[in-house]
Design a protein around this nucleic acid. Structure first.
Lengths: 224, 224
DNA sequence: CACATTTGTGAAAGAAGTTTGAAATCGCGC
DNA sequence: GCGCGATTTCAAACTTCTTTCACAAATGTG
């Protein structure tokens, strides 16, 4: 299981721990930063799926940090703001924040907002032709695939097959379905060809090959 | 692989080594200078992608060196400043520095700032119609191309094709796409024409020709 | 447990796409 | 209209990918 990673930026350790607990209960992996500099350092080092950013911080406020993050990354940012700072909403969202949540908040609300922001980010990425499943990244326009940052060279059919399955993740397709959808309706070859491509895909994708699953008696599916 | 080159200017050797180590771990090539004169000498001799400039130096402080660099170059400059010299920020940035970073800093923060500055510089160059990929430089307005400082003479179609691909780097185009985008929607010739132009481009660009990649079964793309 | 069916694998033939060199054609300046 | 560089066409040589096939391994069944 690859957990999604959230970076919590808040000067108060207590708040970080509290939020971190909520998130970990909900199955996220948490990183913490006490100020903007730490946050930037972490973001530069490892991929993060979302940032929770406190607005009120001593050294640099959340908006300044948000602006600096946006210089180098379009990671989704969710502001945490105390009651009565509502005016900040506009300011924050204009600066490239994706949502804001007013303290005090319930675990449920936090998770719901976070999931919503992550869903939106995923959709937006997919509209740009970039699919991401944990360590597996697929770039439709560039026709490239990377596993854990490492480029993997795929042939035409391998790429098309992977892309199709990934775009329709969760759905099972028979070999004949795949021949029609990926090879074209007028393809007349042997259905076992699909097996061979699945084999090479799994081999080339290493660990990430587990996304392509065999459904015995039916065919294959991509599980993301 | 063409590494990006960073010039570190600091009177303390220890600091130069430390920073140099950080940068080399992050895949940069490092040059070092102990004072402003050395720095200028190096800048005059070889292309540098960014300068890290210590503010506090005995012979000539960082601001003076920055001003002298700016007389001859618009290379991005990142100041290194000790805590408590915050006022220097304004002065530094006004003098043409692109960012500043307060010591002590983490490797992650250094790299993040540096990448941000380099990205900004690239965007600004591109808005002026100058694209740069390692040793390959394309000037859209002047319709000239240079590889490692050496001018390369391209014909009309060669230049248009290269420019289009470079502007849309990372994206794959079929030969037919390219005929429409570069030759015009009403072009009716043979798609193999593209191959020939790619061939001559690769030949003329020498090493830099590797930026133009064949995507088997689809077409070509520029990888920068 | 033995049998039937389905899936995985490795190697090799076959198919398809790309590169290359040379020749034909185009088109602009003179 | 001529000359010359630029552009396009063409086909052979070459490279890479795709498919097939036979057998091994795994899974489900009576």
């Amino acid at each position: 299981m690859d957990k999604r990673t959230v970076l919590i930026v808040d000067d108060e350790e207590e708040m970080r721990l509290l939020v971190g607990m909520y998130l970990e209960n909900a199955g996220f992996r948490c990183l913490e930063a006490g100020d903007g500099d730490e946050a930037l350092a972490i973001l530069a080092q490892q991929p993060v799926d979302a940032v929770l950013l406190d607005v009120m911080m001593p050294k640099q406020d959340g908006f300044a940090v948000c602006a600096r993050i946006r210089e180098q990354s379009d990671v989704p940012i969710l502001f945490l703001t105390a009651l009565g700072e509502e005016w900040d909403k506009v300011k924050g969202l204009k600066l490239g924040g994706d949502d804001y949540i007013v303290k005090p908040f319930s675990p449920g609300e936090l998770i719901a907002r976070l999931e919503a922001v992550l869903r939106r980010a995923r959709r937006s990425r997919e509209q740009n032709g970039r699919l991401q499943f944990g360590e597996l990244a697929i770039d439709e326009k560039g026709r490239t695939v990377a596993v854990g940052g490492e480029m993997v060279k795929l042939t035409l059919k391998e790429f098309d097959l992977l892309l199709f399955l990934a775009k329709h993740r969760g759905q099972v397709f028979s070999r004949d379905d795949l021949l029609v959808k990926v090879w074209g309706y007028d393809y007349t070859g042997n259905a076992r060809t699909v097996d061979t491509h699945v084999k090479t895909l799994r081999m080339k994708l290493k660990d990430a090959g587990r996304h392509i699953q065999t459904v015995w008696g039916i065919g294959y599916k991509f599980e993301g």
